[in-house]
Design a protein around this nucleic acid. Structure first.
Length: 476
RNA sequence: GGCGCUAUCGUCUAACGGUUAGGACGGAGCCCUCUCAAGGCUCAAAUACGGGUUCGAUUCCCGUUAGCGCUACCA
């Protein structure tokens, strides 16, 4: 049984790199019928925040992928300490009584261990510990018995590290709290994690982890490190320097469909190798494989003005169009309300939905694409009413004739409106487009709008006539 | 600095050692059309550099360069 875990630290909101790691884990588990474990790695008391935890939940839930088990490391500290203790008892770790160095004085290139501490006898070590002296527990890297540590990564292949380049890393801090390495490995072992999919920044840590797992006497989980997501400025994606543009909630608020977002992220560092771009969740699960994951970082395209990668937006538009119309209308609702269309109802959205579905890229576009269905048209210049190759007089003629037809057409629907309006255009010797444009602007407040007859039908005779009258008023 | 990883159009990516180096986004243009979209077609756009190995290298090897990561009692 394959068991994977996603283990974020609650030290900032969930960003797209974290989301992608989660997605890859989820995809791998689902592809193989395995389990997804969400584990909050919150052993860094100083940096943890509740808002961050909330943001991670919120972001993950929005993805609509789900997980099977949930843990918090802070609930499992005893386990971590016991594991560290066991390693110490085996003589594979030692107490280091050297006072913590101040962060600034850390230019110790090539530092491997603090002098004198590795060789402390057990008696001496116990004596000082009993006397209440503070210490950090360090792993005793086996530099004499072993030349190198090898990791057979599922993505990067076999990578090795000389033990002479590996420092005696900490297991327990002087506060007694486990370090990330200790907590992570103890939990992975206890939760019987079989595969670790995580960012490539951890590749170098894996050597330490292998040592810990071996010391614990458990099977070492297989690792698959994921190439990193980079910002356009070349830096690793960071919440701190790139801000909310990399936050998952930013995507949600803009109106990305969760599965479109998942689709986009899945294509960063992985590809199905068959030129397929738009994929449903099931297709992704079906196609996903570790072998197809790349080793080079992927740059995500965004700017401060436009936080979204154009491909993500395009993919979202594709998924939006593919949505069942009722589903589409339903997804629209919160964004319509957010746009201030307080008169938006599910029924009304359902009638508008077909008119705007292929004209939207993000759900929030409903605000700019469908405004005139809910409110009076945006103020526009009378000149806008002038049709192609026409003048004010033509606009007026078209509107007057149009008003007459709109007031009298027996059936106010697509078919009835189209034939009546086309006939009318003929009668006053206007091209169809010249007839339609002034009406469109009068009704929508702009030239760019959904097809005219459907729009009129949805708006209804009364509203349409009122708006045409207002336009007429502007011309006289 | 040390150690590790990586390198194909602007971006995401494809290519048993043999292809006119393919696709997608974005860009430009054309078509369709009541506007806008959507759709269709076309164009521009890449193998970082230098050495090998080979009949033949985007692909394998070495070096250079560049980028990234790790080098904490952060994760």
């Amino acid at each position: 049984m394959i068991r994977v875990r996603f283990a974020p630290s609650p030290t900032g909101y969930l960003h797209i790199g974290g989301a992608r790691t989660f997605i890859f884990n989820w995809l791998y588990a689902r592809h193989n019928g395995g389990a997804v474990i969400l584990r909050i790695d919150d052993t860094d008391l100083e940096r943890n925040t509740q808002t961050s935890l909330d943001s991670i939940y919120e972001g993950l839930e929005w993805l609509e992928l789900g997980w099977d088990e949930f843990y918090r490391q802070s609930d499992r500290l005893d386990l971590h300490r016991q594991a560290a203790e066991a390693i110490f008892e085996k003589g594979l770790a030692y107490r280091d009584f050297t006072p913590a160095s101040t962060a600034s004085e850390n230019p110790t290139a090539g530092w491997l261990f603090n002098p004198g501490m590795r060789e402390l006898t057990r008696e001496e070590s116990d004596r000082r510990a009993c006397a209440g002296e503070q210490f950090v527990l360090r792993f005793r890297v086996p530099r004499d018995s072993r030349a190198e540590i090898a990791v057979a990564d599922l993505v990067y292949g076999t990578v090795t590290k000389a033990t002479s380049d590996l420092e005696d890393f900490a297991l327990l801090r002087s506060t007694g709290m486990p370090t990330y390495h200790m907590a992570s490995c103890a939990d992975d072992a206890d939760l019987r994690i079989t595969h670790i999919l995580r960012g490539q920044e951890h590749l170098a840590n894996t050597f330490k982890h292998v040592l810990i797992f071996e010391a614990l006497g458990v099977e070492v989980p297989r690792t698959a490190h994921l190439p990193l997501l980079m910002a356009p400025d070349g830096a690793k994606l960071s919440k701190r320097i790139h801000g909310p543009v990399v936050s998952v909630t930013t995507y949600r608020e803009a109106g990305f469909l969760p599965h479109a977002f998942v689709n986009f992220l899945s294509l960063l560092g992985w590809s199905p190798k068959n030129d397929q771009e738009k994929m449903s969740r099931d297709e992704l699960v079906q196609l996903f494989s570790l072998e197809a994951i790349h080793r080079s970082n992927a740059t995500i395209n965004f700017t401060e003005e436009d936080p979204f990668d154009p491909k993500a937006v395009w993919l979202n538009a594709e998924h939006l169009r593919a949505l069942d119309i009722d589903e589409f209308a339903r997804r629209l609702m919160p964004y319509a309300l957010q746009a201030g269309f307080s008169n938006a109802t599910p029924e009304k959205l359902r009638t508008i939905a077909p008119l705007i579905q292929e004209r939207m890229r993000l759900l929030r576009d409903v605000a700019t694409v469908a405004d005139f269905f809910f409110t009076e048209p945006q103020p526009y210049d009378a000149a806008e009413l002038v049709p192609q190759k026409g003048d004010m007089a033509m606009a007026e003629r078209a509107l007057e004739k149009g008003r007459e037809v709109l007031a009298t057409v027996p059936v106010f629907d697509h078919a009835g409106l189209e034939s009546a309006l086309r006939t009318a255009a003929n009668e006053i010797k206007l091209k169809a487009g010249q007839m339609f444009q002034p009406i469109r602007v009068a009704v929508c407040g702009r030239k760019n709008a959904p097809p005219l007859f459907e729009t009129l039908a949805v708006l209804g005779r009364e509203t349409v006539l009122a708006r045409v009258d207002r336009a007429l008023g502007m011309l006289s």
